[in-house]
Amino acid sequence: MRDPFVLAVPSGGFVLFGTTDENLWGGPATGFDCWTSDDLVTWDGPFPAFRPPAGFWADTQFWAPEVVAHGGRYVMLATFASTDPAAGPRGVQVLVSDQPTGPFLPWSEGPVTPRDVPCLDGTLFVDDDGVPWLVYSRGAEGAPGGPPGITDGEMYALRLADDLAAPAGSPVLLFRASAAAWSKPLWFPEGVEPPEQLNLGKDPLFTDGPCLLRTEGGALHMLWSSFGEEGYAIGVATSPDGEVTGPWHQRDEPLWARNGGHGMVFTDPAGGRHLVFHWPNDTPHERVVMVDVEVSDDGVRLLGDPTGA
């Protein structure tokens, strides 16, 4: 599993989502599954959370499902792409369900992200005024059959309509990958080539997997992923005033540096906060790991090493 996401259900228990298609980079997509647990140790599943309905616009690269309770329903934000260039580039679509495990059905008319550039990894943030924002990445990947991707990945915030079905403004650039001193160009081990379906440019810097955390003092932290000296990594950026539009200040060192990433933090009923991410970043060996974290105005601190490495 890549891109794990854990939902703590208000009525009790947890639901785990993630990217699990066998041919995740460019093969035919199946959908999203989920697993359930009462204790974060023993998991039941998989259960089908989403299967594309007839006529669905996308058929590949089903990535990074996130599910949150919002407006009396459960909302899934997920990345989709099509092998048909006429369908437009990869984007983030909104789906809904009455149950945390689905089945989820399309809610927005295709992606809510801009339809002229490839986008991915959307997360929902509701500000103090109740305004919903989609924070998402324009990573280094190019659209299938189009020009190569950009060389400096970007992170954006996009205001959504109250019902989440459409954008309600223009994207706001938050930062580029090069803003973080630890972010390095994508590299692969000797003898390993990047998947052709990603359509990468030369020596790209990535932005992936945003997750926003509000602190008691009102600051806003963002976990996000790029590549560092030791492979895929998780960094932290901070908006001291708590505004989703920033300005965002990057931490000098990644929170997690060793070939794992796309992390998110959830809170259990006792108030404990846990970071989950996939490690290692080597297909098909990715697994879900979890570690306790401490979140304060000063930043995010790991309280252990989930890999034992």
Score class of each variant (00 low, 15 high):
308 G>Q: 11
130 G>W: 07
121 D>S: 07
248 W>S: 06
220 L>F: 04
129 D>S: 12
221 H>P: 08
70 H>W: 14
263 G>V: 00
254 P>C: 04
68 V>H: 13
206 F>Q: 13
49 A>H: 03
85 P>N: 08
223 L>P: 00
244 V>R: 00
145 G>Q: 11
23 N>T: 11
23 N>D: 14
1 M>N: 07
130 G>I: 05
115 R>V: 11
305 D>K: 02
149 G>P: 06
38 D>S: 14
301 R>Y: 04
229 E>T: 13
94 V>W: 00
176 R>W: 04
66 E>V: 04
55 G>M: 11
96 V>Y: 01
270 A>P: 03
243 E>T: 12
213 L>Y: 00
267 T>E: 13
115 R>P: 05
207 T>I: 14
88 G>D: 10
95 L>M: 14
125 F>M: 06
111 P>Q: 07
101 T>L: 05
239 S>R: 06
236 V>A: 09
59 D>M: 10
33 D>W: 02
152 D>A: 05
260 G>C: 03
35 W>P: 00
207 T>C: 15
164 L>E: 01
119 C>H: 12
205 L>Q: 06
153 G>N: 09
182 W>N: 03
303 L>D: 10
78 A>C: 13
289 V>H: 05
63 W>F: 11
271 G>R: 00
90 R>G: 09
86 A>E: 14
278 H>R: 03
79 T>G: 11
196 E>R: 08
150 I>P: 03
134 L>R: 08
199 N>T: 02
22 E>W: 04
212 L>C: 13
161 A>Y: 07
164 L>R: 04
156 Y>H: 14
159 R>L: 08
